[in-house]
């Protein structure tokens, strides 16, 4: 019984993290039709921004809420700036180019951004665990968990709800959906397609940075944390179906459960759980669980 509740809580907490990391990636893919490898770098940039923001606010003697607000604020501002820069200077010139070329461009961006975090931090491992420590522990099913990790589940669900609401219940969201469906017709209908694309990319990169910022208090932030994130985020997104927000939620749940079950029952294969889940789903549904069926191109 103890193991079962531990598995459920771990799965929920890990799934919440996976969703946060993957939602920006799937949003960008959905609208811009490109897989942004630089998303991994956005994540590590956000984590570093949070580390410095938390460090500064601790030095100023601010409380936990302000520390977290500072971390999120710093990550959002930097994410928005980088997103704007990347979309305007690089991706804008590559729309309509062959897929491998765009993939290479985002890979190159990943290398540059990853190196910049290394230059700024000097390649050391940095910690900012104060907000997480201050929030204390909470007992679930006889086991103690950090309140911060449990709260992240709520944050993640809130992000999912906000994304769903914006896309399905607002005018802006309908414009975005129209651009996804057919950008030429949307332009003819008076939607500013370029602005929608830029905006989506900025929101996606802010989400990537926020994911890093929220993870920063839980881990030792060091160079190279972005590499693993991009592959895991891709696995999550692919399981659910590329470009679909509910798909990312479902993918995060499945991959999180797979990881939690193996971590408790077969720890030696835990590293591979994510990939096994991805390969198993892709073998049955090659385009993910919630992806719409598409005709072959001729």
């Amino acid at each position: 019984m103890g193991t079962l509740s531990a598995i459920i809580v771990d799965a929920a907490s890990f799934s919440a993290w996976l969703f946060l990391v993957a939602v920006g990636l799937t949003l960008i893919f959905g609208v811009l039709r490109l897989l942004n490898i630089a998303h991994g770098a956005f994540y590590s940039v956000g984590a570093y921004a949070a580390i410095y923001a938390i460090g500064a606010s601790v030095a100023l003697g601010w409380g936990t809420a302000l520390q977290l607000a500072a971390a999120l604020g710093a990550a959002s501002v930097i994410g928005a700036l980088i997103g704007l820069l990347v979309e305007r200077c690089v991706l804008l010139r590559l729309y309509g180019h062959p897929e491998p070329l765009v993939l290479i461009a985002t890979y190159a961006l990943f290398l540059v951004l990853d190196d910049l975090t290394k230059m700024i931090s000097g390649g050391r491992s940095l910690y900012a665990a104060q907000p997480r420590d201050n929030l204390g522990q909470i007992a679930i099913g006889g086991l103690q968990y950090p309140t911060y990790d449990i709260a992240l589940i709520g944050v993640s669900l809130m992000v999912a709800a906000a994304a769903w609401y914006t896309l399905n219940r607002t005018r802006l969201g309908r414009c975005v959906t129209a651009v996804v469906f057919d950008s030429e017709i949307s332009a003819a209908m008076g939607i500013h397609v370029g602005r929608i694309k830029t905006g989506t990319f900025i929101v996606g990169s802010v989400l990537g940075c926020i994911a890093g910022a929220l993870t920063a208090p839980k881990i030792a932030v060091s160079p190279g944390i972005g590499v693993e994130v991009i592959v895991i985020a891709f696995a999550v997104v692919v399981v659910g179906g590329l470009g679909s927000i509910p798909g990312a939620l479902l993918g995060a749940a499945i991959v999180g459960l797979a990881r939690a079950v193996t971590a408790h029952l077969m720890p030696e294969v835990e590293v591979f759980a994510v990939y096994f889940a991805m390969v198993a789903v892709l073998a049955v549904r090659p385009h993910g669980l919630l992806a719409p069926v598409a005709a072959r191109r001729i």
Binding site: L94, I104, Y107, A108, L109, L111, V112, D115, L116, K118
Partner: peptide, 20 residues
């Protein structure tokens, strides 16, 4: 030595953008 990835990535970007 510390800016190797930046140089590498910047060159790749330049080729993708100007001489694909």
């Amino acid at each position: 030595p510390d800016q190797w990835q930046t140089a590498f990535g910047a060159m790749m970007l330049a080729i993708v953008l100007f001489l694909p």
